[in-house]
Amino acid sequence: MTSPSDFYGQTSSGEVTGHAYAAQSSTRVNARLVRDGAGVRLLADNGDVLYAGSPTSREHVSGGPILMRFGEDWTFDTDDVKGANLLLGPSSDSWLSNLEVWHPRLIAVLALCCLGVFAVWQWGLGLLVAVAIALTPAALVSSMDTGNMAAMDRLFADPTELSQTDQIMVRDVFENIKAHAPDAPYGDYTLLFRKADQIGPNAFALPGGTVVVTDALVEEFGDPDILAGILGHELAHVSERHSLHQLYRSLSIYVLVALVAGDVGPILEDVLLEGSALASLAYSREHEASADIIGVKTAFAAGYDPAALADFFEALSHDHGDGGPEWRSTHPSNADRIETIKKLAAEQ
């Protein structure tokens, strides 16, 4: 870079022409910025001194004029960017204007964009999610459980119709699994029974540690070994904070995309959102796979047959099919899960 003394004459004299505007008026005054023995002044065309002294501020966006402010009373703009810079010396943010010039170096800027997106995707999101989880109060997570249960009971879940013996059997398995599962991050694990035929044989965990088992699951798969595998899997979702990860991850993506939306335009914004939605499915499948692994280990540690979970998925595939291609699904394919579980079980 050229040093100011080479180019920008603090010693030179000269002038640039432009327009001056008084505060609170649209009146355009033909004016010139003059530098001579008497210093820098803003002069009207008729010779009136509008302001004596250097501009109090100056700004320039590539391709635009130089805009100067002279105290509270006058602004002055000129298209003679070079002339003004020669007169006043380089401005402090000229590096930005220099970077923006149409030049092969912009290819490097473009490459940095792609690299940046990759880095944000790979590490940035994880960082944001970790910070958000650290900042989330435990009481909030527990109230998500209560709120969701209340909504479910109103919408599609009824009190359980399971016999006391069945309930006690499942509870025993649950207590055993709980004793060998990783610690619950937000309050204790609790087991609830619900009759919810709409969702079939099913079990799911809420972020605060509530695990719900449907009547249909106990009726169709009443085997303690299978239940142990399923409960181990659900507790793993809780201990690994999987649902919070997914919530914060999708929020972070939404916010980041919204921040650059003005710059990427509506078409690319859609591509980004759709693409990240697909990629989030991969993230969800990763969570399912990791819950399978932890669940199998927990079931084994609690003294159950770890391979039983594979039987469950085989039965599920048989009854309900394997459902669509994997890349469009939140869960890994049953075939993959069966294979992984069998392999894990063999290793225990």
């Binding site: 590539s62 149409w102 912009l106 800027v109 964009c113 940046g116 940035g124 916010v255 980041l256 921040l259």
Partner: peptide, 19 residues
């Protein structure tokens, strides 16, 4: 051309500063 320079530099700086 001028706006392309402004745009791509904007985008790059927005990405590397996490928005």
């Amino acid at each position: 051309q001028t706006y392309f320079g402004i745009w791509i530099v904007n985008l790059m700086l927005s990405i590397v500063t996490l928005g």
